[in-house]
Design a protein around this nucleic acid. Structure first.
Lengths: 213, 213
DNA sequence: ACAGGAAAGGGGATTTTTCCCCTTTTTAAT
DNA sequence: ATTAAAAAGGGGAAAAATCCCCTTTCCTGT
């Protein structure tokens, strides 16, 4: 019996190509391709379909992104292993996803051979991590950065608006708050995200897919 | 005789998957995969290899990006048709690439069937354009925006530095110029790019791959 | 009911950004 | 060589962003 793989990625050409590739692996077959987290949820909730043995999840999706999707999967189908397949090579993001319980974090520039190994290892041993990821993990422990920050809802709203050409005053109006409060969110985010200018906020937001171009 | 396809994309998993997919099309075979423009140039310059019938080119590559690569191909191998395969759905970028002579601009969310049609059409009729692209073209003619002034070298350097947390004063130091000159570049770019704040510059630079995260 | 903490908001100063209008220097074409 | 345009640089001011320290308001747990 072949192992069933679900692919969730908004780039149809990629996921279809990847399907073909994976179907060439003797032991695997792709039984579902979704464009975003919502597609995956509908599929998993519809139990006329057999659950997959593993999920390959992209992070950067327009509708329901990988982070949110992962939360849902862990809550509702914690036994299905998830491998992230992303273009973003960001240590913090990797750590965040691993904390959320993904079984591996693969960059889209890996070779098919490694992808195969990642699938095999995940099913056999429960996880697959590249050296890079391992290194990132060790690093994070080393520099015991307690950067256990949490971006609040309002701060998140502000952060998104900061990625526009609006002035803080205009943002304050839009959020129906005092410019001083907005300034507080800014200050707070500067500290949490370790940046020192609005440009830093924008870069953070884009890198972490909080603001989509 | 199968048509030879070259794929240039920095995401190995994508290009390898895509290869497998394309090799499934009866009339095509992928005879080369490069990670960036430089790889492609080396390959094309080495004439022990037969030239391809068509090139699939990604835009967003770290080493030598699609825009530069396209310039080189048009200059040195103008007869080889190039199809852009990008994730960036940006009207101005599409126009720029078409001006440079690409035979089609495909988004990575197309279906394999459409990709096949794009390859066929390009070889048979010389080009393949989706409705979206056609519409963008017509639009651009319609609103005869004389917009596309060119960004000068110094301005480009400044633009990249503006995407950091440096102040303009610091940027001036780094570029060994007066802050007033830097201010001139800023002003000039604001007008050319139709933005009105530094955030606008950053967004433009990222959207157009001038600054890479 | 109330203490403690977080969220909201303020005062005020400094720095940076943005804008407008102007002069000098460099470059390129005739 | 002459000249016109482009590039570099300047003065000065208003607007926006940044910073620091403080008060009020709103929750929340006991």
């Amino acid at each position: 019996m072949k192992k069933k793989v679900y692919i969730v990625d908004d780039h149809a050409l990629f996921s279809q190509s990847l399907s073909v590739l994976i179907n060439h692996f003797e032991e695997y077959e792709v039984t579902f391709q979704g464009q975003n987290g919502r597609d995956l949820i509908f599929r998993l909730q519809d139990n006329t379909h057999e659950a997959p043995d593993i999920i390959l999840l992209d992070l950067n999706m327009p509708v329901m992104n990988g982070v949110e999707t992962m939360d849902w999967v862990m809550k509702n189908h914690p036994s299905i292993p998830v491998l992230v397949l992303s273009m973003q090579d960001d240590a913090n993001l990797i750590l965040e996803m691993i904390k959320k319980g993904v079984k591996g974090y693969l960059l889209k520039d890996i070779t098919p051979t490694l992808l195969k190994k990642a699938l095999d290892d995940t099913l056999n041993f429960g996880f697959y991590h590249t050296e890079k990821v391992t290194k990132a993990l060790i690093n994070s422990l080393h520099q015991n950065k307690p950067h256990m920050y949490e971006i609040k809802d309002k701060e998140m709203t502000f952060l998104k608006l900061a990625c526009t050409e609006k002035t803080y005053k205009e943002i304050a109006d839009e959020m129906h708050m005092s410019p001083k409060t907005i300034d507080g969110y800014r200050e707070s985010l500067f500290e949490k995200l370790e940046v020192k200018s609005r440009v830093g906020l924008v870069l953070y937001a884009i890198k972490n897919n909080i603001y989509r171009l």
